Amino acid sequence: MMKLDKNEKVLARGLPNIHHVNDTNMVISYIRGPLLFVFNFHLTDSYERYCIGVDEAGEYQLTLNTDERRYGGQGFIKEEQYLQRTVSRRVDGLRNCIEVPLPSRTAQVYKLSRILRI
């Protein structure tokens, strides 16, 4: 996280826009600048395609994944899943969504890497 802040100046981008809180699934997501943060706090439940709303249609690149083995994770998210393309479906009050793999007890940070005009 500290390296991410150094590279992206996350803390200097103002307050986060928390737009997804699901108490049952124990998932929280927020947007801060061009970054989308997704946290799964559930002790046991993982999700293969968890929908998170995003405003901008495009491709989102996974830039931080605490499920990687180097961070003590299980390595459930494969490299081919690091790039997510939006789906045109209203979620969380936003026009588009991405469907992300979300293992239990992990955090992910996505960065909008390419905007798609529809």
Rank of each mutant, 00 (worst) to 15 (best):
I98S: 04
V54K: 09
F37P: 03
F37A: 07
Y82W: 14
D23H: 01
V87C: 04
I52F: 09
I28M: 10
T86F: 05
T106Q: 06
V91N: 08
P34Q: 06
H19E: 11
G58W: 02
T106F: 02
G53T: 04
N17I: 13
L15G: 11
A57Y: 03
V91H: 02
P34A: 10
G73A: 07
L35Y: 08
N25E: 07
M26P: 07
Y60R: 04
S46P: 01
T63P: 01
L15V: 09
L43P: 08
G75L: 03
L94I: 04
M26A: 07
Y60G: 05
C97I: 03
A107S: 13
I28T: 08
V87W: 08
L94Y: 13
R90D: 13
T86G: 05
S104E: 09
L43W: 06
T106C: 14
N40G: 00
D23M: 08
V54G: 09
R69I: 15
R85M: 04
L36C: 09
G93F: 11
R90F: 09
G53S: 12
Q84D: 00
L36F: 10
A12I: 08
D45I: 00
S104N: 12
N40K: 06
E99H: 02
Y50Q: 00
R95A: 15
P101T: 02
L64F: 14
K78N: 05
C97D: 08
S104A: 12
S29C: 04
P101R: 10
Q61L: 14
G14C: 13
Y82S: 10
V10G: 13
T66N: 06
T86P: 03
V10F: 10
H42L: 08
T44G: 05
Q74Y: 12
S104R: 11
D45E: 12
P103A: 01
D23K: 09
I98M: 14
R32T: 06
E56Q: 14
G93A: 12
N96P: 11
I18S: 06
A107C: 12
I18A: 12
V87Y: 01
I52K: 10
Q84H: 01
E59K: 11
Y60V: 11
I18M: 13
R89N: 15
Q74E: 15
R32C: 09
N96C: 12
S88G: 00
S88Y: 06
P103E: 03
D92K: 08
E59L: 07
Y82V: 06
P103I: 06
Q74S: 11
P103Q: 01
S88N: 12
G72C: 05
T86S: 13
L62E: 00
A57C: 11
L94R: 15
F39R: 02
R32A: 10
V100L: 14
R105E: 07
D23P: 07
A107I: 02
F41L: 14
